[in-house]
Amino acid sequence: MIYSYMQKQENTEYKIGGQIWVQKNAENFMGPGRVALLEKLSEGCSISRAAESLGMDYTTAVKNIIAINKVADKPLVINHNDEHFEVTRYGNEIIKVYLQLKEEHTVFLEKLNKTFEEKLTKIIL
């Protein structure tokens, strides 16, 4: 019984993961879903098409846009009508900065995983 438990432990792969959420004054500003929505709108998708492609309903997408603009220093998205939402220059810059942070976060997680694996190996041996 102990042997089978040990054998299972040796084949287990641990992975430390995480997401980046940017907050301002304790309110969520930017995260993976919101950035994906902004990217779709920036590509010229209607709000309905952008939402649908992300598995989000129209109301949730609009609420996210309202929340983003409420927290931001300047509007990230301008609403021209019920379907046409335009990402501003500021919004596109925020997307770029977030994606850079995400890359740095990925590198950090890779290092953290390597360190954890090394420490775990020492414990098991």
Rank of each mutant, 00 (worst) to 15 (best):
T59N: 15
G44D: 03
Y58C: 01
L112K: 15
D57E: 05
N113K: 08
K24V: 11
P32K: 11
N69V: 05
I66N: 07
E86H: 02
L112V: 13
V77L: 03
L101Y: 02
G91P: 04
D73A: 14
K102R: 13
N113L: 08
V77N: 08
T12M: 09
L41Y: 00
I78E: 10
M30T: 14
E104S: 10
G91M: 03
F108S: 10
N64Q: 12
L101H: 02
I65C: 14
S42G: 03
M56S: 04
G91D: 03
Q9H: 06
E39S: 10
D73K: 14
N28Y: 12
E117H: 12
K96W: 01
I95T: 14
G18I: 12
N11Q: 08
I66P: 00
V97R: 14
N28V: 10
E43G: 08
Q19V: 08
F116T: 02
K70R: 14
V35M: 07
P75M: 08
S53D: 12
K74W: 09
Y90G: 01
R49F: 10
V35A: 04
F116C: 04
Y58L: 07
A72I: 05
Q100Y: 07
L41G: 01
F116R: 10
P75A: 11
L99V: 03
H80D: 08
N25M: 11
E43K: 15
Y3C: 00
I66Q: 12
L109K: 12
I124A: 03
S4I: 12
N92A: 00
S4C: 05
P32Y: 04
G33P: 01
A36T: 02
S42I: 00
L76K: 05
V62F: 02
L109E: 07
V107P: 04
H80F: 15
H105K: 07
Y3K: 09
E13N: 09
I124G: 00
A61T: 01
I68T: 02
A50G: 02
I16R: 13
E27C: 06
Q19P: 00
E39Y: 03
M30C: 15
F108L: 15
N81P: 09
Y5W: 11
L109A: 07
T12Q: 06
G31N: 15
N25Y: 13
D73W: 06
G55L: 06
I66H: 06
D73F: 06
C45Q: 10
Y58R: 14
Y58D: 03
E93A: 09
Y3N: 04
Q19I: 08
Y98I: 02
F108N: 13
K24T: 04
I2Q: 10
N25W: 08
L54V: 11
V87A: 09
D73M: 11
E43R: 13
A36I: 01
K114L: 04
E104P: 01
E93S: 12
Y58P: 00
K24N: 09
Q19W: 05
K102P: 00
S53E: 14
I124S: 06
G33Q: 10
I94F: 05
K74E: 15
E117M: 08
L54P: 13
A36N: 09
S48V: 02
E83K: 15
E43L: 13
P32R: 13
I95S: 13
I95N: 15
H105L: 04
T59R: 15
A50Y: 05
L37P: 08
A26L: 14
F108T: 11
H84Q: 11
E117P: 00
V77Y: 06
E52F: 13
T121E: 09
